[in-house]
Design a protein around this nucleic acid. Structure first.
Lengths: 198, 198
DNA sequence: TGTACATCAGTGAACGCGCGTTCACTGATGTAC
DNA sequence: TGTACATCAGTGAACGCGCGTTCACTGATGTAC
């Protein structure tokens, strides 16, 4: 590898390094110095790109929301073009993303350390949440108008988000196994998702 | 206040102090030294009662599960003795606890820093999860036997847990307000809980 | 095409801070006789 | 009832560590002319 004095794309490299640390070592290990180490630059280098740790975390979360949307969009594209099939696909993508990148999911949805005034984070986060709403015809998601539609959408979101959370923390598996030893978790997940979308 | 050399109940005092710090300053501020400061003892004192920070956090979470069960039991006791009314009461207690003690809720359900081999934590946590199951007659919760019952119980749990999580992180409020400006959040929560229990 | 210079990105030493942990200690409590 | 002694709980100084941050620097890049 070329050892140029200037990295060329250190900002992106630092975000990628932060993602690696997050999944491998957990959020408590994710510091500016650790990200610099992982990216192979001096520990003072991140300050040129991110003012603080919160800045780096927010950029990482924003990038996470982009991946989150891509994951869901891929599931939707592979599904039948009916409202029910679309809702199932969104749920599958949501839960699948959380299980594939639990550290990133926790950061995006749960971290108190994010700076939500960060422009990229606010934009990408808002765009992601729009995917959770039911579509209107072929025009993509629109805002529900009736209280009933809002209730349904939020209840659906709660169930999918709770399922994802309980899975990545291992709680659902533990309780389900205790209630029903030998249960097929993957099948149970598929059933729960179908319950919520129905 | 008497300044006895021996505290008398320092273990309990340290757990209480840790809870105060958790809700006031967040989990990143919760250290052994901070708990000792809050309890008014020297920084080396906690080592006599908790081997490590994970030990203190686990004891705090165990105490949290006791409070969690008490909160839910109080709602159940105040509700009509029907299965539907009981399910609604459990959901109300679950969400109410999370909103009243969000830091503790996060620690109990989400923290990667807990030591689940801790005897108190495992015992109290398991007892709490049993409350989430549907009751059989007047004998209290029993283990579901059919796959269908397991599916229903886990789907219900997912929705309530997701609702609690999205609320304490402020996400549900943000998205609901954007979708439906001026929406009554408390009424929406009550409706979502009714949706899940129905 | 070549030179001068400004700007930018990354370096490495240094700082002060709070942390967990260790350790000899001290004061209080409990028990044996 | 009194004395001696073991045990226990909390103290305070000290340690090494990784952290964020600062700062003068150096090497590379881009631009003006």
């Amino acid at each position: 590898m070329k050892q140029a004095y200037h990295h060329g794309a250190l900002r992106e490299a630092l975000i990628a390094a932060a993602g690696t640390i997050l999944e491998r070592d957990g959020i408590t290990a994710l510091t500016l110095r650790a990200a610099a180490r992982e990216a192979g630059v001096s520990h003072a280098a991140p300050a040129h790109h991110f003012g603080s740790l919160a800045g780096l975390l927010s950029e990482l979360a924003a990038a996470g929301f982009v991946r989150f949307r891509e994951t869901i969009a891929a599931e939707v594209a592979a599904a039948a073009p009916t409202p029910d099939a679309r809702a199932l696909a969104v749920s599958r993508g949501y839960v699948g993303f959380a299980r594939a990148a639990p550290g990133l999911f926790r950061l995006m949805f749960r971290s108190e350390q994010l700076d939500w005034t960060n422009a990229a984070l606010e934009r990408e986060g808002a765009a992601a949440f729009m995917l959770l709403l039911p579509p209107e015809a072929d025009d993509g998601p629109v805002l529900p108008t009736s209280p009933q539609a809002l209730n349904t959408a939020m209840a659906h979101w709660s169930m999918v988000h709770g399922l994802a959370s309980l899975l990545i923390d291992g709680r659902l598996q533990a309780v389900a196994s205790k209630m029903h030893p030998g249960v097929d978790i993957e099948q149970l997940i598929a059933q729960i998702i179908r319950t919520g979308a129905g």
